[in-house]
């Protein structure tokens, strides 16, 4: 067992975890943050995408011990917690960027990584950034529109 200190959504968690525990199981089973999903176990589908020190990682193939001393942001921590939504969360609703919702947290976290790097991405850049995230309801067009719409919202608020 290993002692780890992982800050998740701004809150520090000190826990004992086994060396092999996956970050996604730490989030889901230990902290009960079930917004981060497991779709494929192999970093193919991106449903488990979270931010680690601000950069997107796939939590299903990342060990909890690797996150020791670092900052993790999950879908639950994306908005300010005061009831208002992040522009990406609003935009996915407004542009019908989801159907079953299972891929959505991963899509939104990946898109937030993109928008932090590139405030005004082209359609091609959005598609490239989301290439590691699968939507099986085949909603890619509206997902891309959602990200574009969120970028516009963020820019107009800036």
């Amino acid at each position: 067992m290993n002692q780890v200190s992982i800050t998740v959504n701004g809150k520090k968690h000190e826990r004992e975890v086994s060396s092999r525990m996956l970050l996604v199981h730490f989030l889901r089973d230990v902290l009960q943050l079930t917004g981060t999903h497991i779709g494929c176990d192999t970093s193919s589908c991106g449903a488990c995408t979270v931010l680690l020190d601000g950069k997107a990682v796939k939590a299903c193939t990342f060990l909890a011990v690797q996150a020791d001393g670092r900052q993790v942001t999950t879908i639950e921590g994306l908005s300010d917690g005061n009831g208002s939504l992040h522009p990406l969360q609003e935009a996915f609703n407004e542009c019908h960027g989801l159907q079953c919702g299972f891929c959505t947290p991963g899509m939104i976290m990946m898109a937030s990584d993109l928008l932090a790097r590139n405030a005004s991405p082209s359609e091609g850049e959005i598609r490239h950034a989301l290439e590691g995230n699968f939507c099986r309801c085949t909603g890619y067009h509206n997902i891309v529109r959602s990200v574009q719409h969120a970028a516009e919202k963020i820019q107009s608020n800036a």
Binding site: R28, I75, L85, L98, F102, P105
Partner: peptide, 24 residues
């Protein structure tokens, strides 16, 4: 008209409740 889905808020905020999310 554009009809907004009522279930989106829980899905976009990580509050969906899929079977594996349930802990008894």
């Amino acid at each position: 008209e554009s009809v907004k889905r009522v279930e989106d808020k829980r899905f976009t905020t990580g509050k969906g409740r899929y079977t594996d999310d349930i802990v008894l």
